[in-house]
Amino acid sequence: MKKLPRKLHGIIDYLWAAIMFLSPFILGFNNVRPAVTCFFIAALSAILLSLFTNYEMGVWKRLPMAFHLDMDMVLGFTLAISPWLFGFYREIFWPHVVMGIFSFSAGLLTYSNSLIIAPRDIK
């Protein structure tokens, strides 16, 4: 069932975070503070998680890829239910549901055991 290689997942992580930062302005819900806050927190979480993950797109490589994928699924689920959890579903909910399902799916469909890069292997 796993389809996505880790490097592609890493590229998607950074693109996903950029889309999350820009979406409230592009989609016009930048005046719904809780909705924007959820997107910004999710984007920042994805960037930090990616920077510290031990995979091809990580910088500091301290977190295992399996943990990263689990957190993608937790983040995706939380983002998808956030409009109801924080009460802004009457103003906006589709972007949160779609991006949450995307994050959850990426975590579910990515290989976790491809090439392992240890800090000592980086020259």
Results as ranks from 00 to 15, higher is better:
12 I>H: 06
62 R>C: 06
105 S>R: 00
5 P>V: 10
22 L>H: 06
99 M>L: 08
35 A>N: 02
5 P>T: 14
74 V>H: 07
51 L>F: 13
88 F>P: 10
63 L>E: 10
104 F>M: 02
85 L>M: 08
8 L>Y: 13
113 N>R: 12
12 I>Q: 10
65 M>A: 07
114 S>M: 15
22 L>Y: 03
59 V>E: 03
97 V>L: 14
52 F>V: 04
53 T>M: 06
89 Y>F: 11
33 R>Q: 15
82 S>G: 02
2 K>D: 00
67 F>E: 09
41 I>H: 02
80 A>N: 14
87 G>T: 03
3 K>G: 11
2 K>E: 01
28 G>A: 04
94 W>M: 13
116 I>Q: 14
6 R>W: 09
51 L>W: 12
77 F>K: 06
94 W>C: 07
90 R>V: 14
29 F>L: 04
41 I>V: 12
71 M>G: 11
59 V>M: 13
18 A>F: 06
105 S>V: 02
93 F>N: 13
39 F>V: 04
96 H>F: 00
54 N>F: 00
123 K>V: 10
57 M>R: 09
122 I>G: 15
71 M>C: 11
17 A>E: 13
69 L>F: 01
60 W>R: 08
56 E>I: 11
28 G>P: 04
102 F>S: 02
89 Y>L: 00
122 I>C: 15
57 M>I: 08
7 K>S: 13
38 C>D: 01
61 K>V: 05
15 L>H: 00
10 G>P: 01
37 T>W: 02
67 F>S: 15
67 F>A: 15
65 M>C: 07
61 K>C: 06
46 A>H: 02
25 F>R: 07
1 M>W: 03
20 M>W: 05
48 L>W: 04
66 A>R: 12
19 I>W: 08
52 F>Y: 10
96 H>T: 03
42 A>S: 08
3 K>T: 04
14 Y>M: 02
83 P>M: 03
15 L>Q: 07
29 F>V: 07
96 H>K: 03
41 I>K: 01
85 L>C: 07
69 L>P: 00
43 A>G: 10
10 G>M: 04
68 H>L: 11
51 L>T: 10
36 V>H: 04
18 A>C: 08
57 M>G: 04
117 I>E: 11
32 V>P: 12
104 F>R: 05
109 L>V: 03
97 V>P: 07
43 A>D: 08
57 M>T: 12
36 V>G: 09
123 K>Q: 10
21 F>Q: 00
110 T>Q: 03
72 D>P: 14
90 R>I: 11
89 Y>P: 07
19 I>L: 12
55 Y>H: 13
116 I>P: 05
37 T>L: 09
50 S>V: 04
123 K>N: 13
28 G>K: 02
15 L>A: 12
17 A>D: 11
7 K>F: 12
52 F>D: 04
8 L>S: 15
118 A>T: 09
13 D>N: 02
15 L>D: 02
111 Y>K: 07
94 W>F: 12
58 G>T: 01
13 D>Y: 01
10 G>W: 07
59 V>T: 10
44 L>G: 05
60 W>D: 06
93 F>I: 09
67 F>C: 13
40 F>T: 09
100 G>I: 00
62 R>K: 03
39 F>T: 01
119 P>Y: 07
36 V>P: 08
62 R>S: 09
39 F>N: 03
67 F>I: 15
122 I>K: 13
50 S>T: 10
40 F>S: 02
119 P>H: 13
53 T>F: 08
27 L>I: 11
70 D>I: 14
102 F>L: 05
116 I>G: 13
23 S>A: 03
19 I>Q: 08
